[in-house]
């Protein structure tokens, strides 16, 4: 899946890209198992064609979009983003996709649409862990409208120049680089425009640990571990590589800081 280099400010990290092997075998995708190696082993069953994404709620143009139409909806761009997992590890991944804003503009949200909710596939026939009690299925996520409209918020169809491997959220996923990885919903089937802040999967599971915003923030610890540092997967030195300091908004403060001006980030974690 080819993509031209993105011109969006902040979209082309110059850091060393994580090995494809690590990015495609060390995943959190609980529909396919809770171990990091499970998704790569089990996601072969996921059927990514035919695939439709339903756009509904407070929009002037609701409808069902086939994956082929979505792929052509805007020009594909390559973007190299840092990815910071809430568990304290990080990668650098070259995604292929376009700004979610392109889709949002097409479907014309109504004035009272303040949030966007993402619903992902929950198919017990192809996803062995849907039905486990770990989470309330389907996995849902959400963004505030201004976050969803931010040019860095990516609707991704590929990585490393190829279509997304199933375990990385094929055929279409979200990538929000300044938030912890779990905010970036995988294998999306529904995008819903709503007035009230939608509930999200991890917030429902443990509200005191995973807030709606979940912006990467070294100063707001997870209740059970510090978020001040992170382990960059594949860093030279392997086992003995030092952890890196985590940056506010995962280093995208210049681009997204103004979205949260005046907000208490400790309260709105």
């Amino acid at each position: 899946l080819p993509g031209a280099k993105s011109a969006v400010p902040g979209a082309m990290s110059m850091e060393k890209v994580t090995d494809y092997k690590d990015a495609s075998t060390y995943n959190n995708f609980y529909e396919f198992g809770t171990d990091k190696a499970d998704p790569a082993k089990n996601a072969g069953t996921l059927k990514t064609r035919p695939w439709t994404v339903e756009v509904e709620g407070l929009v002037k143009k609701p409808g069902k979009y086939g994956i082929e139409d979505l792929l052509k909806l805007s020009a594909q761009e390559e973007r190299i983003y840092r990815l910071r997992c809430v568990e304290g590890w990080s990668m650098v991944i070259p995604w292929v996709g376009y700004s979610l804003a392109e889709l949002i503009k097409k479907v014309e949200p109504q004035g009272n649409a303040r949030f966007v909710e993402f619903v992902t596939l929950a198919d017990p026939k192809t996803m062995p862990f849907v039905g486990s009690r770990v989470l309330d299925w389907p996995y849902t996520e959400g963004l505030r409208m201004d976050e969803a409209m931010h040019p860095l918020t990516l609707l991704a169809f590929g990585m490393y120049g190829e279509v997304l491997p199933n375990q990385n959220g094929a055929p279409v996923r979200l990538v929000v680089p300044w938030k912890y990885g779990f905010k970036s919903a995988k294998s999306i089937v529904k995008i819903r425009f709503v007035e009230k802040e939608p509930s999200t999967a991890w917030n429902k599971a443990a509200a005191n640990e995973y807030g709606f915003y979940s912006n990467v923030n070294p100063n707001v610890d997870h209740p059970r571990w510090s978020q001040a540092t992170e382990r960059r997967i594949g860093d030279g030195g392997g086992l003995f590589a030092k952890r890196r300091k985590t940056e506010l908004f995962n280093g995208y403060e210049a681009q997204v800081g103004q979205l949260y001006a005046g907000m208490d980030l400790k309260k709105n974690y």
């Binding site: 990091k36 594949g234 086992l239």
Partner: peptide
Amino acid sequence: DGLGANPAEFL
């Protein structure tokens, strides 16, 4: 280097 992507976590 046989402990996967995150050897520290593995150990």
